Computed example of a mutant assay.
Amino acid sequence: MSVPNLAMWCASAVASAWKGSQLVRLPDDKGLRVITACSALVFLALTAQLAAGSDSAARMPSDQLPKLFQNVVLTFFFALLIMLLQSMVDSEALGSHGPVEVVIACATSCGLIVAFAAADTNAAGFSYESANSTAALLFYLIGNLYMAYATMRGAKLARRAADQAQSRVRLSLLVAGAGLVVCCLGTHVPRIVSTSSRLVFQRDAIPGTATWTTPVLAIGIAVFFLGIGYPGARTGLVKARLWFRDRQRYRQLWPLWSALYNAFPDIALLPPTSPTRDALRVRHMRLHFYRRVIECRDGLVCASPYLDDEPTNSGSSTHRLRAALHRSLTSKPSAAVSVVAEPTESGMEADIDQLLELSRRLSAE
């Protein structure tokens, strides 16, 4: 089991699981369904590739059977991918080009099956690096011919689709297309030349393709998946940044919120949790943060009838608030209403900034 093969398998497993989780949330997204199917097909193909190199393969009727399965699955993966990209470039042309891609994939699969059946697959000479029989060489030639066609056509369609797409999707398609070009020129074209020369001239025109093309293929697949995953990864990074910011501000509001809640328990929109559980809160951070903002502002409204008439300034607002909270336990509210932490500008963020500043001063005292 080589490191590049294992790296490709891990990348495809992550991509397949990620797209599957997105499909669960958005089951009606047709484009996402196709991308998820493509990712799953790549995962199955690379799983078969690992199985072909494992010890368990020796117990199969042919220890090269997973290799046939891998190549057949990849043909249908690229047929789906090309059809998806064609729909993005020209949806009207999909009706004429789509069946052609299916026919090419089926013809390639049939050719692979026939060559596989004719070859002595249990012989040591069936592996790519040591293949010497006509049937074995044809098997690899057919597979690489189709892969060269599919990767180059996929890269061309990805480029055309990028020209019609918005900025983030454009970059994603360009990166994915670049990965397909790397696979085509760095792996499949050299292997076509190698197998053709071995088949016709009984010598290898490009020695060592079994060794150096595999890492190049791994790089191309990694770049391809990077392109596919870029929009989702970028969205995930933005969401992570917002989560950390909301969590930080949620914790910063704790001194103000706890002081107001102790005086006015009715401000809690939901039953409060323990400080330990509150500190370990992870899910729905934005919802909990804005709920705490609302509760803090409600608490200040409840405290406003107990405030004295001392002018508000940065040095006295916390003192006035603490005095008001203490007064609320023993005195009746007055008719006058004062405001603490009044925003100087309109908007939710200005209000949040004033609450955070007040909470920080309470915590510092």
Results as ranks from 00 to 15, higher is better:
116 F>M: 02
337 V>R: 15
357 E>M: 14
226 L>Q: 05
363 S>D: 14
134 T>P: 05
73 V>L: 12
77 F>S: 03
120 D>N: 07
100 V>Y: 10
302 C>S: 14
80 L>C: 10
296 C>I: 07
225 F>T: 03
13 A>G: 08
360 R>C: 02
65 L>S: 14
359 S>I: 06
213 T>E: 13
358 L>M: 14
136 A>W: 03
76 F>N: 03
220 G>F: 03
333 P>N: 11
212 W>Q: 04
5 N>P: 00
190 P>T: 09
5 N>T: 10
194 S>H: 01
102 V>K: 00
145 L>A: 11
74 L>W: 01
275 P>C: 02
192 I>A: 04
358 L>W: 12
305 P>A: 01
235 T>N: 05
12 S>G: 01
93 A>W: 06
298 D>C: 15
120 D>P: 00
241 R>A: 10
245 R>Q: 04
193 V>H: 08
270 L>W: 09
67 K>M: 15
261 Y>D: 00
175 V>F: 07
145 L>H: 04
302 C>F: 15
256 L>T: 02
331 S>Q: 15
23 L>R: 12
232 G>E: 06
146 Y>Q: 08
29 D>Q: 02
27 P>H: 12
277 R>L: 12
10 C>D: 00
283 R>V: 12
320 R>K: 13
284 H>Y: 11
220 G>V: 09
345 E>V: 01
207 P>K: 03
